[in-house]
Computed example of a mutant assay.
Amino acid sequence: MTLTDIRLDALDRLESEAVHIFREVAGEFDRPVILFSGGKDSTVLLHLAVKAFWPAPVPFPLLHVDTGHNLDEVIEFRDRTVERYGLRLHVASVQDYIDDGRLAERADGTRNPLQTVPLLDAITNNKFDAVFGGGRRDEERARAKERIFSLRNAFGQWEPRRQRPELWNLYNGRHKPGEHVRVFPLSNWTELDVWRYIERERIDLPQIYYAHQRQVFKRDGMWLTPGPWFGPADGEELVTKTVRYRTVGDGSCTGAVESDAADIAAVIAEVSASRLTERGATRADDRLSEAAMEDRKREGYF
């Protein structure tokens, strides 16, 4: 077989790019870390990291910023995955910051915007110089602006004007003491790419990504799960629906969608027909303003 006989399909090319990025970071940085929440994107990210360094173990620890309002199924999956691969997991707890007064609970109960300070403290305290995230450009306008290697200043802030050109798969990881680089190996993937890769690689996910019956209540046009995040409130009726989650996050602002997609083939068909990204359809924290995500990224958010 010659090189001309090798034909890579779209998923092969995306996988190859992501593996290259992981290995590039391993060669350029001293203390990388992978953000891992147990959601589909971070699970695919971890799967790619395992492939990049196999048969050696993944040489980076994991970091989860835990809002305390995560769905139980996701936390159970997170812990099971960490044990399966024998990885080190750092947990930055929003609840700890609320308990000791460093953060205050929001009136709306949403904790996603409160993740920034614990994240930046964890990066600083552990001296992480490269932070892998599962962000994709198709998710949201602010994420579409970001490079694969995204420099953050000494305060962890994103400065769009300091974005560097990335030509011919050359990535510039130079940074000053105190700065770090966010790295997004899934930048060029779409939600449909992610699901097709999950199908091809037979990647295990939390079962809430597939249709199941659940008690939910409606708020701001979304079906939310009841929990310690102030819901359901007066006038919000609790009903049983067949739903699934397209994305997972803080339970107070991450909605489920009505769906009969109980297996991966049905999910792929559903995503193929959708005209809304998962964040646009199910994330209330992105509806706070037209520039909600960009504002949070400038402060140091994912």
Rank of each mutant, 00 (worst) to 15 (best):
R182G: 01
Q207V: 04
F60C: 06
R182K: 10
R279D: 04
R23A: 05
F155R: 14
K297L: 15
E17W: 06
Q163R: 14
G27L: 12
L186G: 00
D41F: 01
P118Q: 07
A265K: 14
D234I: 02
P165Y: 11
E15D: 05
D263Q: 05
P165L: 07
G251A: 14
V216M: 14
E294V: 00
V33W: 02
A261Q: 11
D72F: 07
L87R: 11
T225Y: 03
Q115A: 05
W54A: 15
R152H: 11
D295E: 15
A26G: 08
G134A: 11
I21A: 02
W158A: 02
A284I: 07
V267F: 10
L238G: 11
G101F: 12
V25Y: 03
G249D: 02
V239H: 08
T81Q: 11
G235A: 07
Q215V: 00
L288F: 09
T254G: 09
R80D: 11
I34G: 05
A49M: 10
G27R: 15
I264Y: 09
Q213M: 11
V58W: 06
V117C: 00
L192G: 06
G231Y: 02
R246P: 00
R200W: 00
V131M: 07
A291D: 15
E278S: 09
A52T: 01
T277G: 08
H69Q: 15
V194A: 09
W189H: 11
A10Y: 00
P61F: 04
S42D: 03
R196G: 06
R246C: 02
R164Y: 13
P226S: 04
V25W: 03
R162H: 13
V91S: 12
H69W: 05
Q213R: 15
M1T: 12
E237A: 13
P226G: 03
L120T: 10
A269M: 02
R182F: 01
V117K: 14
T110R: 13
L114N: 03
R162W: 08
H180Y: 15
Y210E: 00
D295M: 08
R283W: 12
L167K: 08
L119V: 05
S289L: 10
V131H: 09
A142K: 02
N169F: 08
V74C: 06
Y301E: 10
D72W: 04
A104K: 15
I21Y: 03
D79N: 15
V181P: 01
F184T: 12
E270V: 12
S272R: 15
F155G: 04
R106M: 01
A281S: 14
V58D: 12
P59C: 13
G27E: 14
I203C: 02
D295N: 12
G39P: 09
L63Y: 05
R182V: 02
A262P: 00
K241V: 03
D99H: 13
V216C: 10
F302V: 08
V257H: 07
Y245I: 01
D250V: 07
N112S: 15
R141P: 01
D204A: 12
R214G: 00
E105P: 05
R147T: 14
P177I: 07
S274V: 01
P61K: 10
A122F: 03
I268A: 10
H212E: 04
G109N: 10
S274E: 15
E146D: 01
A130V: 02
L224F: 01
Y301N: 09
G251L: 08
T247Q: 13
E201N: 07
L120M: 14
